[in-house]
Design a binder for these strands. Structure first.
Length: 283
DNA sequence: AAGTGAACCTGAAGGC
DNA sequence: TGCCTTCAGGTTCACT
């Protein structure tokens, strides 16, 4: 997202190539025709959705699902590497089986959307319809925004019998929190993922909620910082290993010792998702 | 109403 | 080597 902003803002999308009719949902009718020729006026984010404002009045929505990624093929940079690479990268025949969308910009840059599992989404809709958009309506507060704090969490957790893990993963409560970050934040906060959310809604738990909110922020900020540095040399990495991955305290560490107490990290399934936690440190 | 599980789809990894 | 099973960073939908 941070890497995409300077590449897209102000540019005109000169060509749109769809290599299949759908991702998770079908592309809207006339998607390519409506998108081609538009200038990108701004790029922003809501939850896990990337949103691009267009001078046509439409908004382009992109969700990467679990395996989606956008590769930037810089016209200038690639051309400097030689004609051979440029040809290979831009040739239809050079496209991988999971390269589903290619956007060409007026400076020659190509954006390739790749997504093996096709859990990703692209949509195009009038900006006026954003507030009532099916995917964007009802999303909770941004965890890095001002209104995300202990009071907000207490209000949303009140009466909730769902486990804390599920409540934090619920996009209607907190926007954009993923499985890894919830696991990591709960560990840092010393809170059990199995605890019912409502047990933290009372005034006596306010300090613990404040700590939780703080840890959610910190985990996200650290991940963004690590991911941002990864994005810079994305082409030189294996593409999947962000620096933050090496800092997981619990995620994907089942059976390994907790860094705080030495006891084995446990794994359990909640709402169909793996949860990793330390049953000693997290209560 | 709220909460859980199955479904969407492909690839990687581990067991035999 | 290959076949089989399980699991995966997300979200929606259909059930209890």
């Amino acid at each position: 997202m941070l890497g995409l902003k300077p590449v897209l803002e102000g540019r005109v999308i000169t060509q749109v190539v769809l290599r299949r009719a759908d991702l998770r949902f079908p592309f809207p009718p006339d998607f390519a025709v409506r998108l081609a020729g538009c200038r990108v006026t701004g790029l922003w984010r809501r939850a896990k959705y990337i949103l691009a404002g267009l001078d046509s009045g439409d908004v382009l929505l992109i969700h990467l699902g679990m395996t989606g990624r956008v590769t930037i093929l810089s016209g200038l940079g690639v051309r400097n590497l030689g004609e051979f690479y440029f040809e290979t990268a831009s040739d239809e025949q050079g496209a991988g089986p999971h390269d589903h969308v290619v956007l060409t910009l007026d400076d020659g840059t190509r954006l390739v959307y790749t997504d093996p599992r096709r859990f990703g989404i692209m949509d195009l809709f009038p900006e006026k319809a954003a507030a009532t958009h099916k995917l964007l309506g009802g999303i909770g507060v941004e965890p890095l925004g001002n209104s995300f704090d202990a009071a907000y969490l207490a209000e949303r957790f009140r009466g909730k019998s769902a486990p804390l893990k599920a409540a934090l993963l619920d996009q209607r409560i907190v926007a954009g929190l993923g499985n890894i970050y919830v696991c990591e934040a709960l560990h840092r906060a010393g809170l059990s993922p199995r605890r019912k959310a409502r047990t933290l809604a009372g005034p006596r738990a306010r300090q613990r909620l404040a700590a939780l909110a703080g840890h959610v922020r910190t985990v996200l900020q650290e991940a963004i910082a690590a991911g941002g540095s990864t994005l810079q040399d994305f082409a030189h990495t294996d593409g999947g290993r962000g620096a933050f991955q090496q800092r997981f305290l619990v995620y994907d560490r089942e059976g390994e010792p907790c860094f705080a107490c030495g006891n084995a990290i446990k794994r359990l399934v909640q709402a169909g998702r793996s949860t990793f936690y330390c049953s000693t440190c997290q209560r």
